[in-house]
Design a binder for these strands. Sequence first.
DNA 1: CGCGGTGTTGAGACCTGTCAAGACGTGTGG
DNA 2: CCACACGTCTTGACAGGTCTCAACACCGCG
Lengths: 255, 255
Amino acid sequence: MRATNPRVSRSRPDGQMIEYHLKCLRLRDRVAPEEEAAIRGMISEVVDHPAHRTIVHAGRDVRESLLLCRGWLARVKDLPSGQRQMTQLHLPGDFADLHGFTLKSLDHDLVTLTSCRIAVVPHDRLLKLTNDFPHLGRLYWTMTNIDAAIHREWMLSFGRRSAIARMAQLFCELRIRLQIVGLLNGESYDFPLTQVELGECLGLTSVHVNRTLQELRRLNLIQVEGRRVTILNLEKLKAVADFDDQHLYLLQRPR
Amino acid sequence: MRATNPRVSRSRPDGQMIEYHLKCLRLRDRVAPEEEAAIRGMISEVVDHPAHRTIVHAGRDVRESLLLCRGWLARVKDLPSGQRQMTQLHLPGDFADLHGFTLKSLDHDLVTLTSCRIAVVPHDRLLKLTNDFPHLGRLYWTMTNIDAAIHREWMLSFGRRSAIARMAQLFCELRIRLQIVGLLNGESYDFPLTQVELGECLGLTSVHVNRTLQELRRLNLIQVEGRRVTILNLEKLKAVADFDDQHLYLLQRPR
DNA sequence: CGCGGTGTTGAGACCTGTCAAGACGTGTGG
DNA sequence: CCACACGTCTTGACAGGTCTCAACACCGCG
């Protein structure tokens, strides 16, 4: 159940809401016109959330999943000690908690990093959609599996990569994911996270994030100004990260 | 495609092969008799692998998924530097690469930690199964989502838990997963990993694994003899780990 | 009997964390 | 308009957790 929030504004879905999402899907498989129509029809409403709100709480029952149309979301897990770890960043086009459809509740919070426009998809409509179009069921299953593959790549980062490699890996991954939906501008993209949040993402402290960012700048690999990242030398950045896009499954195949 | 291996022995499926698997499923949802029959029918053959073999290679096309009947498997990701990270441990009853059904190839290797008996499920049969029984499709989707939830818990471990907490978390998690399939004996269970492998699991070196194990023993939390772990003080072990079983979704619900 | 894998221990290095302080920009209320 | 609070970024000094390298004991096995 999403937290009720008086500052949430609601509106009708319009056709533009899910263009990013369709790009994500079509990168992995064909989507027939009647399937596309069904996808457009599954949205019940569109809501806007301000930045820095927890919009889904761990452990509570969910009856709908959230399709991100604008802004950034993060999945956050907490320890009793107060330590936080982000386990995924969500960009426009992402189904942020599609796994809630089968799990019925989440093991993490979902928080807005920026103000967000979100399309709400009730689970009963998702049930009908996947029954009517088994192929879409498999395609959405694929998307949650790609999500898990990204988890595995992050695990590899946390377990084996140094701070600088870990950060380079993240910037490379985000670059591709933003490129997919057309939000990469040349070699730069909006990156709205503070250094504290980036630390919560990478399993580092904000102090070390600061020093690691300086090191990436010193090596002329990236440039960070305001809330925007520019990749100055993609090949070297990939080399620092040992980056491999295999885990993103960037191939259109019948699913 | 699994690596062909001359030492693999093949045999016919027998009814006992998937009892563990059915326990895993039935913990999360009801499985109707006709569904159970369909599940039993999806196995094409049963193969035995010796220990320490890579049985599925990252990046290669897969046309079948592997249901573990006996022994332990691990998912392994490699860096060009030669560093390895295990991203999941598989116990009897686990569908080790069910995500391969939709992804069509894996982003990691699958290696045997012990000798293993494995039931092979061709993807065309899985396709028929999920078309004939959409509910089973959703249940298997659920299982891959629980797998991803375990990934997230490990990410929390890698990012925020100390070595001793990380190790305690793993022992708690394995205890529950083995209990589900009936492989927990009182408070002890077989644990076939070497300290090197445990390090590859936890993102630690084997030297530090050795010292951390000693610390857990010194605190009288666990006992390790041969290839067997006994939990001496579960409550304190959970406290050290900040353990929470929420991410295992131990609740039977309609999926 | 020798060998490789495994577990253990010690010394020291290094990466990252902790704590503290200050600069800077922004928003807000007086 | 100013004062102030607050979040963010930055820097320094130091601590500590984990790694690296090395050596050795033990053991099963060919």
